[in-house]
Design a protein around this nucleic acid. Structure first.
Lengths: 333, 333
DNA sequence: TTGTAAGCGTTATCAT
DNA sequence: ATGATAACGCTTACAA
């Protein structure tokens, strides 16, 4: 209540209930070795004093933070939010707290280090393994390169991209272009590899990818290169939906019809993908499940329940709408 | 490294550097009262041993967690993610950690309680004040009812809704309907009040709101009532964009033209709002800034830097696109 | 400039 | 069934 009232500790509760702090602790831990009458007395004292245990003291004594860390590169778009939601939900079920750090911010090195001092383990998304592995903490990698010695949770990129590319071929399209930077993230590289593999299957040679970051403004720029005739293609396989959507919008504003003049497909199945016309053909990932699994594995790791490092690859699903050239199904939003 | 190696503590570092733990602590705190040579020796030891301080021990000694809590009702849609991003970014700048709990999950009472044991203060979104105020922790409320005794950060709802409604009147529209549940959240109620106020200004009487939660499926249902002739209106003022978008899509699928047959406006300015045709007229909130300010205020509260509780109301901005009946500007995506 | 030692608020091991 | 008391790993006077 008052700004500077000294915090109520376990000692105050013990005094108030006329027991020792050991007994208070027992009651709070739910130990059965306490007489019902004293238990009630303690509980009453807790309530009357508004006692809130010190998590720090607890963690120190227990040598466990009961908290899992999650490091994300950013929080733009629905992808990261979904992942986080899955992570926190599973963590809560396991009664673990969640600490978040967004690594994009300037001093993230610091932030991650200080995170490591307050959690039992950390799930990383989009960071290189080395910097992380020696942190002396339990670690799981999300959407990262498979390494036999660390836990990795990822989704099927290669195969999905291959299917998607093949689908475009089936539409009779031949001059495909991959838009996105395979060097930027491991999952993008895998998508590009699937794109290349689909070409190989047909005895075709994939062209060089159009390097572009995943921002809407970058998509606009790519679109303008196409409008200017600087880039030629009859289908665009984009690294994610934001890119695809931005390109599509800019193209159509210039009178270039999708999918008639050019087909466009994306990746992620964001909300907008099913609201635009034509609907965006894309690939859906089980993002929530990835987050949940990351929390789950991390928990096992810190609990010592996990035998060895595991690699999990969750399945993806191609979502066909109109932007690839298929007839639009009117069932969507 | 090895699964059960005892954690490296400050004692190990002290031994290794042949100093006392006090000196190690001083070096780590950046105290200037340490000879450069010993400082180096300590730093070397830290590196060689991969020493990671125990946040728990630190917090216990310092009586500070250096961590801020954030309680969100859910994480769907861009609103919460943006808010969180703002919160974590500002917190990181202030060198505070961030713990997140999503209150929607079953046992959130528990989760919030245990959160309170590990943070210095908590920012709540969409929870009733009473349950929160007695937590003996510092608290700020986001998008909540203004109360003189607690910090509240919110955005301008009443005025924005009034402007938006008036804009619809200016289009010659008269039979407006508010879609959303004013009882569900404080900010929705304020929007509805603005809607009503705009009617009063014109000597009109607002009709009863169409109660609907903020899900796409609910929007679809509302649209179907309009299609069936069960609901009559020439303009819909929706509680948020998801609702507006879902309604608009369902309406147009049934051949009802927006904005010709009926105008639709939303709230939030989500990404999809600028990608659909017609573009959705809506209201933009400085969500990131709200999150940042919440972190900021919370920090001042726990640092004792804050004098009194403050109420902040951040300005909103009406974003005109095509769905209200205005000519579409082609500049958007 | 450095060391000694007293907390910080719990949990858990002994006794009783 | 309960109470002393020793950790837990730091920070921070106070001494030297």
């Amino acid at each position: 209540m008052s700004p500077e009232s000294p915090a109520v500790t376990i000692y105050a509760v013990a005094d108030h209930a006329r027991v020792s702090i050991a007994t208070v602790s027992r009651v709070l831990q739910g130990s059965t070795l306490v007489a019902e009458s004293t238990r009630q007395r303690v509980l009453d004292a807790v309530r009357e004093l508004d006692y809130l245990p010190s998590g720090a003291a607890r963690s120190l004594a227990e040598r466990r933070h009961h908290t899992l860390g999650l490091v994300l590169p950013e929080l733009g778009g629905p992808y990261y939010a979904e992942l986080l939601a899955g992570f926190e939900t599973r963590a809560a079920e396991l009664r673990q707290g969640v600490m978040l750090v967004i690594a994009g911010n300037e001093d993230h090195g610091d932030a991650v280090h200080s995170l490591a001092t307050r959690v039992d383990g950390i799930a990383f998304l989009g960071t290189d393994v080395e910097r992380v592995t020696r942190s002396a903490k339990k670690v799981v990698l999300i959407a990262g390169d498979a390494r036999p010695d660390v836990d990795v949770i990822s989704t099927e990129n290669h195969h999905g991209a291959q299917l998607l590319t093949e689908h475009l071929f089936a539409h009779g399209l031949r001059r495909l272009l991959f838009v996105g930077d395979p060097g930027a993230a491991h999952d993008v590289r895998e998508r590009h590899e699937g794109f290349v593999a689909a070409h190989l299957d047909r005895g075709l040679q994939a062209r060089e990818p159009v390097l572009a970051p995943f921002r809407e403004s970058d998509g606009r720029r790519v679109a303008e290169r196409i409008i200017d005739g600087d880039l030629e293609a009859d289908a665009l396989v984009c690294g994610n939906d934001e890119l695809a959507l931005a390109i599509m919008a800019r193209l159509m504003r210039a009178g270039i019809e999708v999918p008639v003049d050019i087909a466009v497909v994306g990746w992620d199945d964001v909300m907008t993908a099913r609201y635009v016309r034509p609907g965006l053909t894309t690939v859906r990932q089980p993002v929530r499940a990835v987050g949940a699994l990351a929390a789950e594995r991390l928990f096992h790791l810190v609990s010592g329940t996990a035998k060895d490092a595991e690699q999990h690859v969750l399945p993806t699903e191609v979502v066909i709408r109109g932007s690839c050239g298929c007839p639009e199904l009117a069932t969507d939003p």
